[in-house]
Design a binder for these strands. Sequence first.
DNA 1: TTCAATTATTACCTTTTGGTGGGTAGGGCA
DNA 2: TGCCCTACCCACCAAAAGGTAATAATTGAA
Lengths: 120, 120
Amino acid sequence: MPTKTYHIGVEATMEIIGGKWKSIILCHLRHHTMRTGELARAIPQISQKMLTQQLRELEAANIVARRVYKQVPPKVEYSLTDYGQSLSGILHELCVWGEDNIDRREAAGESITLLNRDDV
Amino acid sequence: MPTKTYHIGVEATMEIIGGKWKSIILCHLRHHTMRTGELARAIPQISQKMLTQQLRELEAANIVARRVYKQVPPKVEYSLTDYGQSLSGILHELCVWGEDNIDRREAAGESITLLNRDDV
DNA sequence: TTCAATTATTACCTTTTGGTGGGTAGGGCA
DNA sequence: TGCCCTACCCACCAAAAGGTAATAATTGAA
């Protein structure tokens, strides 16, 4: 197999939490285990396709655990793995920095809103 | 103007440091002010177009400062702004987490290489 | 019988992102 | 004269990411 080469650590991190949705999903899972529909309601802009696709990728990277209950209608829960928890601090900082960034831009006259702050 | 709406802080952060190149560029600028060509050599995979494009966007977000010397041939230096420095801790953690991620994957048998570790 | 509930898949399309190869500027220098 | 150096801009193309909409599966409840 061809060796995968990284030049700097952050490349690997961004491959895992980068993209439009992964960091948002992880920030929610940081607080509680959540069902699929619960995540979808927490992230109203995401489509069902993107939600499951991103969750699959996070699962493959061993960041997120998927637990299926044998029920009808189906029940599936997602949570951070132990390894995924190691991202928790970074995710929190990313949230806080973004909140501050939005505050600054608003103070600078930009028309901008933040609906939810990281409540932990 | 239409109000820009974010649902969670991390969205705003990722808009600024997300994408394939921005976090890599910032990790380098974290250590020293660098000239354009110096950055290009430090990130050999990047094209000239992407390098300047990403730097322009980081400049617009007030994360990176661009200093032009009136010389021929041209000399341009990039550095983190004071505000950009506020990302330094996060960038470092992103590097370190990625290094650990690569170590784990290698230990798990994946064929994978990391050329440079964050030396600070 | 028909529907509601929940998760997930698929095909198809649009948008965004990134890559390539060319060109410009303008003073120094052979 | 002609070429070098550095930064960087543009036109064009390819690839990746993301969006939309329709559909499956299953079983208890109306």
